[in-house]
Computed example of a mutant assay.
Amino acid sequence: MFTDQRLRRLKWACRRGMLELDVLFLPFVEEAFSQLDDHQQEVFERLLTCDDPDLFAWVMGHQQCDDPELAAMVSTIVNRVKV
């Protein structure tokens, strides 16, 4: 379970160096993060430790993430935006 403090840190981590990532991650946390199970929340938190160029390539579909859990989370985020 995420405490308020941990959630605030997570939102801060969503502020990236690329606007394209900012507009994906922060709304995702604010609108969909609470609907994830505990494991998925941990995976999302781990995703935010990745480098921006990698995240951008995965989100845009230019590359496939080698980690299946991270790839699934990227897919969840991208599919949410497409809806």
Results as ranks from 00 to 15, higher is better:
52 D>Y: 02
4 D>T: 14
71 A>P: 05
66 D>C: 00
71 A>H: 02
25 F>P: 04
78 V>I: 09
24 L>W: 00
43 V>E: 03
20 E>L: 02
50 C>F: 12
46 R>D: 12
1 M>S: 14
40 Q>L: 00
67 D>I: 09
57 A>H: 11
31 E>Q: 15
78 V>A: 08
25 F>T: 01
5 Q>S: 12
28 F>K: 13
40 Q>W: 00
75 S>E: 13
66 D>T: 10
71 A>L: 05
26 L>P: 08
55 L>H: 04
27 P>A: 00
52 D>R: 00
77 I>T: 07
61 G>I: 09
19 L>H: 13
29 V>I: 14
59 V>W: 05
48 L>G: 02
70 L>I: 15
40 Q>A: 06
46 R>W: 06
81 V>G: 00
78 V>D: 05
73 M>Q: 01
11 K>S: 13
41 Q>Y: 05
39 H>N: 07
31 E>D: 13
55 L>M: 15
20 E>S: 07
74 V>Q: 00
41 Q>V: 04
34 S>F: 05
63 Q>L: 09
57 A>N: 10
33 F>H: 11
63 Q>W: 06
64 Q>I: 09
57 A>K: 11
48 L>W: 04
6 R>A: 15
33 F>S: 10
12 W>K: 13
12 W>A: 14
64 Q>V: 11
24 L>E: 03
50 C>Q: 14
31 E>F: 06
24 L>N: 04
51 D>T: 03
55 L>Q: 08
27 P>W: 01
53 P>F: 04
37 D>M: 04
29 V>M: 05
4 D>F: 10
81 V>Q: 12
69 E>N: 11
74 V>L: 04
43 V>P: 08
59 V>S: 04
33 F>I: 10
20 E>K: 07
35 Q>V: 03
7 L>T: 03
50 C>W: 10
21 L>N: 05
11 K>P: 11
28 F>H: 12
37 D>W: 07
25 F>Y: 14
31 E>W: 05
72 A>C: 13
10 L>R: 07
44 F>C: 04
22 D>P: 03
41 Q>D: 06
76 T>D: 12
7 L>I: 04
25 F>I: 02
75 S>P: 00
17 G>P: 07
59 V>C: 09
4 D>N: 14
35 Q>D: 13
41 Q>P: 09
62 H>N: 10
17 G>D: 05
59 V>A: 09
72 A>W: 14
46 R>K: 15
41 Q>R: 15
77 I>C: 09
40 Q>M: 01
5 Q>V: 14
61 G>R: 07
18 M>L: 15
77 I>R: 04
20 E>P: 05
59 V>G: 00
21 L>T: 04
71 A>G: 05
51 D>G: 08
74 V>I: 15
26 L>H: 10
48 L>R: 06
57 A>M: 07
60 M>E: 15
38 D>Q: 14
67 D>F: 07
1 M>C: 11
65 C>R: 03
32 A>G: 01
75 S>I: 00
59 V>K: 05
23 V>N: 06
53 P>E: 11
35 Q>C: 05
67 D>V: 09
78 V>K: 11
27 P>R: 02
6 R>L: 12
38 D>F: 11
